[in-house]
């Protein structure tokens, strides 16, 4: 094992982390501001990917496809909020779980009805494809590097938005005290729609970015949804900073675990069973990480009281 391989794997972990951050940011905002558990967040990720694939197939432009994914997911999110979600803010978490589970069924099968049962095609544009040479002689796919940069840019943008803008102040105030902010004359229902659409757009962007190097298919959102929940719980619910830290931690753990655990096991086992046993433990690793963090810090890394 060379140090180049280790560095490359760290970059891979970083890239997975950035992708998870895009998913988790919206989820944690919506939870922090509105107190809503949204299982259908993964459906917005899927909507983004399908919108991008459709527009890319139609126009051939990747930039237009990304724009379409933002727009489509934001629109789907706003619609979801206006029709269903706003009736759920005052309900308990259980009603929210059931309602958003129903939304998953509707979105998944609705997408299958519109686009068919087969995966869609979405590819990396030629100007982003292929590897680049990084200092130290690492060959790294340009597209993955781009995802890391987009993730960093979105993170920076979100911090600015929340720290510096009027809407950010309202968001922070909403997290701290919901009655207070209404009393201050903020149109709270509009704020909620905007925050929800913003989170949806980020999920849609993640779906489109990832769709180009993965498979655009029905049900693609669910595994990511679970990971995103793990991320925001590790980071502390409602905290953007926590979502970033959690995403990086989960990305690194998952990537490095799946690489190094089998090699560790190979020290004292034959290769085939080490590969299998190591992979088994690696697939459990992030859940073990999450349980361990919650045992030490019951409200996550940056969480206040739950």
């Amino acid at each position: 094992m060379t140090y180049i391989l280790v560095l490359e794997q760290i970059l891979n972990g970083l890239q997975l982390g950035m992708m998870l951050f895009l998913m988790a940011a919206g989820l944690t905002l919506v939870f922090g501001v509105m107190g809503l558990i949204n299982l259908a967040h993964g459906s917005l990720y899927m909507v983004g990917a399908f919108a991008a694939a459709a527009v890319a197939g139609w126009t051939g432009s990747f930039l237009l496809a990304l724009t379409a994914s933002l727009a489509a997911a934001a629109a789907a999110g706003a619609l979801m909020e206006l029709v269903v979600i706003r009736r759920l803010y005052r309900r308990d978490h259980l009603d929210q779980v059931l309602a958003t589970f129903a939304l998953i069924l509707i979105f998944s099968e609705g997408t299958r009805w519109l686009f068919g049962s087969f995966p869609l095609f979405l590819d990396v544009p030629s100007y982003l494809s292929g590897p680049v040479s990084l200092p130290g002689g690492i060959q790294y796919p340009l597209y993955r590097l781009t995802i890391i940069l987009i993730g960093l840019a979105v993170a920076a943008g979100l911090f600015l938005l929340i720290a510096r803008t009027r809407i950010g102040i309202q968001i922070r105030a909403g997290e701290a005290d919901r009655e207070m902010i209404a009393a201050l004359g903020v149109d709270i229902s509009k704020l909620y729609t905007v925050v929800f659409a913003l989170g949806a757009a980020l999920a849609g962007l993640a779906g489109a970015l990832v769709g180009a190097i993965q498979s655009v298919q029905v049900g693609m959102g669910e595994p990511v949804l679970i990971l995103a929940f793990v991320v925001i719980v590790i980071g502390g619910i409602g905290s953007i900073k926590g979502a970033l830290a959690g995403a990086l931690l989960v990305g690194m753990t998952d990537t490095l675990g799946s690489v190094f655990l089998p090699q560790l096991f190979a020290v004292f086992m034959d290769p085939a069973s080490a590969a299998s046993a190591g992979a088994s433990l690696a697939s459990m690793l992030i859940y073990i990480l999450m349980a361990a963090i919650l045992l030490v810090r019951p409200s996550g890394l940056y969480g206040g009281s739950a």
Partner: peptide, 16 residues
């Protein structure tokens, strides 16, 4: 833990 953290930690044990 409690609240949403409890939901998620029980989920984590299930997934393990």
């Amino acid at each position: 833990t409690s609240g949403v953290y409890f939901i998620m930690i029980t989920l984590a044990f299930g997934q393990m």
